[in-house]
Design a protein around this nucleic acid. Structure first.
Length: 825
DNA sequence: GACCTGCTGCGGCCTG
């Protein structure tokens, strides 16, 4: 290695002065960056990644200073983080070593929270390094003087790259990096990642066509993670279905009692609200040291909770994914996960919130909410031990993001078409962008496409006489900057006390059902609804014990393939009479009952159960492919059977399987029992056509289009503080959808909406794999008189959607009585 | 009385 390529000795000296020894992986990063290499650094949280890349940046600056090539006083290093809460902490961490190593360097902070005075200061005298977000970087790219301010950036660090690479924020990041590389061809880029399965791919997505020079550095030994399960005290009385898990209240209280600080993760916001209330009802002495945290609570409230966690003042916090990332909460000793962990990466991420420092052990305890979650727990423990971490897929040339970027660059000094095309194609996301697609995007920002030519507000970007594309109108520029970003939130109503204090936000549909004086639970408080006015619901504190809990329409994350496979392996073991570990031992009676009445699903067995009831003819199948695939699969079967004989079906799904119920008899044994017949029903031929026909695909695309229309800048969200209602936004994006369908069928955004539905909402690739795998499994076919332990939760699921709560309780109680009689020896 | 599955993340205008 030549001498110029080694990092300066000053870095070692800084460590030595503290009695520290740099880790080998930190040295590797320093050396690679000193040679001008980009790369990806992968290590678990709390392992020293920050210093690895930050000292690499300082090392390069020291090198340049020593070589006399350091002639710039502008912005040199950009540090991107996906979260504002992380940005301020990062700034502090980066500033710490500066006074000794880099006197004169300043680390700035630029997010949406940054006051305009600070922004102005940064414009006048730029800090050497800036901590910011992908969105704020895009905003900087949209400033007319972007080139002057950003052309000296020679190193970019992208923190938590695993959080960005799989979504459109990651694509926006790729485009921004390409822009910076246009000004600084030798730009050095380093990504940091933690829980991720496909590392080489992650590096490739980050670096684009510069990846050939890329380095992959893996951190020290994998962190020790201990995962165990709170096994219900009486497993045979544990519910077969349901997701709340309140039966486990007392064991959870005992766990919290035994540890200093505990994070209690739930899967949904309403579940977090309910658990918080139940814990407080059971332990009133925890008032003040028990807190609640989720994405619909006001930022001020959340900040207070985060501070309490950092200082160790809080005993426990009930939260959703809102605490997955971000700030390091050193005092957290224990993490509980109520309900399905869904994936290995997600579980490791949550486990990592405890023992957050080098050398400490992360501990997570799974709390099942129904019997089969004991199986998931057993599967998760094995998958974690084997570190079978899910891969993340990066979006493939989303044109809405490209359209937004074109306007951004046109504002930020303008572009020449052929230059920008070449630049965009250097990103991984757009490496296969065709000339036709490019021309379409360019035409779309220039004229609004075919159908919008008459509307001047959609002539956003025009070439001048020299062929430079620019934004001709200041108002269009202003509107564009207000819409930069790819996150489209569901419009919600603000909730405030009548004195003005903000509490958070709730979906319109829930508030609409409330009448003056009604009580509800939100933010861990009992509230009385007073009135609503302009997208704000005013409330006052209420007394009394009862109250509805709001529900939010959130995402529906399926069980990951990794976890599903691990579950099938566990079942296979059980079929050979092996029940290792407390989870499988507790589950044994239930699995034996399943085996007695029907059979255990396994990786090489497809269990099909039919049953006749007063409701009609039931079919239960258990492919273990996650709920999204089961939706597609159920719709596919219903469509294919319905094409041969008159029958209509109602469908229920969960992560393990699905149920098809028809009022009229269907001879499932004839349709499935021979391999030839099953092959006909489960063929992947005409899969796309049949799935689209079986589901209301147009309606799904229309909903998806709301997001695309927003990102592409078709729909204006309104000025801050005067949000438009969800209905208005849906209506206007829906209008565009209709107009394009009717008058502009070649609009590529329509095709994108359909592609996103198929890939993200139906997991078409996984569906195809599942179908192929199913036809290779041996079919175990049973005609039953009653639902099995695997079938029962599906019946409850279907009833839940069809019936009111009270009627559901009655029905479930009746089903349970029947089952208990049947299960009695 | 309702709830008892359905997450997370960012950003911005005008007030001279």
């Amino acid at each position: 290695m030549n001498r110029r390529a080694s990092p300066p000795a000053a870095l070692d000296g800084w460590f030595a002065a503290r009695g520290w020894q740099p880790f080998a992986f930190q040295r590797r990063v320093w050396a690679a960056a000193a040679r001008g290499h980009s790369g990806l650094l992968h290590a678990t949280t709390g392992a020293g990644k920050t210093y690895a890349v930050w000292f690499a940046a300082l090392g390069r600056a020291l090198q340049q200073r020593a070589a006399g090539t350091d002639d710039s006083r502008g912005l040199r290093v950009l540090w991107l983080t996906p979260m504002r809460a992380l940005a301020a902490d990062t700034q502090r961490a980066l500033e710490a070593p500066l006074s000794e190593l880099m006197p004169g360097w300043r680390v700035g902070l630029r997010t949406g929270d940054t006051p305009s005075s600070e922004r102005a200061r940064q414009a006048k005298s730029p800090p050497a390094a800036l901590v910011t977000t992908p969105e704020s970087l895009s905003l900087m790219l949209s400033q007319a003087d972007a080139a002057r301010r950003l052309q000296h950036v020679d190193m970019v660090i992208v923190d938590e790259w695993h959080e960005l690479m799989g979504n459109k924020r990651g694509v926006q990041t790729q485009l921004a990096l390409a822009r910076l590389r246009h000004w600084q061809p030798r730009l050095v880029v380093w990504g940091l990642s933690a829980t991720l399965g496909n590392l080489p791919r992650a590096r490739q997505v980050l670096l684009g066509d510069a990846d050939a020079q890329g380095v992959l550095v893996q951190g020290r030994l994998p962190k020790r993670v201990v995962v165990d399960t709170l096994v219900p005290p009486n497993p045979s009385r544990f519910p077969w279905g349901g997701h709340l898990g309140i039966e486990m209240l007392q064991p959870v209280i005992d766990e919290i009692d035994r540890h200093s600080t505990t994070l209690v993760f739930t899967n949904t916001r309403s579940q977090a609200e309910i658990w918080y209330q139940k814990l407080l009802d059971a332990r009133p002495d925890w008032a003040g040291v028990l807190a609640l945290h989720h994405g619909s609570l006001d930022p001020a409230l959340r900040g207070w909770v985060e501070e309490g966690l950092k200082s160790g003042r809080l005993k426990a916090v009930v939260s959703t994914s809102s605490l997955d990332l971000g700030v390091d909460f050193l005092p957290v000793e224990r993490v509980l996960q109520i309900g399905s962990p869904k994936g290995v990466a997600r579980l490791l991420q949550r486990a990592g919130r405890s023992g957050h420092a080098p050398g400490r052990v992360s501990r997570l305890t799974l709390v099942p909410t129904h019997s089969l979650e004991l199986l998931e727990a057993a599967a998760a423990i094995r998958a974690v031990a084997a570190r079978r971490i899910e891969s993340r897929r990066a979006p493939d040339k989303p044109l809405d993001v490209l359209v937004q970027h074109l306007v951004t660059v046109a504002l930020g000094g303008g572009f020449r078409a052929s230059d920008l095309l070449a630049e965009v194609r250097r990103t991984d996301a757009y490496r296969t962008l065709t000339d036709v697609e490019w021309q379409w995007a360019l035409d779309f920002v220039a004229r609004g496409g075919q159908s919008l030519v008459v509307y001047p507000e959609y002539r956003r970007v025009l070439p001048d006489d020299d062929g430079m594309y620019r934004v001709p109108d200041a108002a269009i520029g202003r509107r564009h900057r207000m819409g930069i970003g790819t996150i489209v939130s569901d419009a919600a109503m603000q909730v405030r006390f009548v004195n003005g204090t903000r509490l958070g936000s709730i979906e319109e549909s829930f508030i609409a059902r409330l009448r003056r004086g009604d009580h509800f639970l939100f933010g861990g408080r009992r509230l009385e609804f007073v009135r609503s006015h302009e997208m704000t619901a005013f409330v006052r504190p209420a007394t009394g014990r009862r109250g509805a809990v709001p529900r939010w329409q959130g995402g529906q994350m399926p069980l990951s393939s990794e976890l599903a496979h691990a579950a099938l392996e566990r079942l296979q073991q059980a079929a050979r009479d092996r029940f290792p570990g407390p989870e499988m031992r507790a589950l044994r009676p239930l699995l034996e009952l399943q085996a007695r009445w029907s059979a255990l699903p396994a990786a090489d067995v497809l269990v099909a159960e039919t049953m006749r009831s007063r409701e009609g003819q039931h079919l239960f199948l258990y492919p273990f492919a996650g709920r999204l695939v089961h939706v597609g699969l159920a719709a596919l079967l219903a469509y294919r059977v319905g094409a041969r004989q008159p029958a209509s079906f109602s469908i229920a799904v969960n992560d393990y399987g699905f149920e098809l119920l028809s009022a009229t008899p269907v001879d499932w044994s004839a349709l499935l029992a021979t391999p030839e017949a099953a092959q006909r029903l489960l063929t992947t031929d005409a899969l796309l056509e049949d799935v689209l026909a079986g589901l209301n695909a147009t309606e799904l695309s229309r909903r998806r289009f709301r997001e695309i229309a927003r990102v592409a800048g078709l729909v204006f969200q309104g000025y801050p503080g005067q949000a438009r209602s969800a209905r208005q936004l849906q209506a206007s994006s829906s209008l565009f959808f209709d107009v394009f369908q009717r008058h502009d069928a070649g609009n590529l955004l329509l095709g994108q909406a359909e592609r996103e539905v198929l890939e993200q909402e139906l997991e078409l690739g996984r569906l195809r794999e599942t179908l192929t795998a199913l036809t290779q499994r041996r079919l175990a076919f049973f005609e039953l008189r009653r639902a099995t332990p695997f079938g029962f939760p599906l019946m409850v699921e279907r009833l839940r959607e069809a019936l009111s709560t009270e009627a559901l309780t009655d029905r479930v109680a009746r089903l349970l009585r029947e089952l208990e009689r049947a299960a009695a020896p």
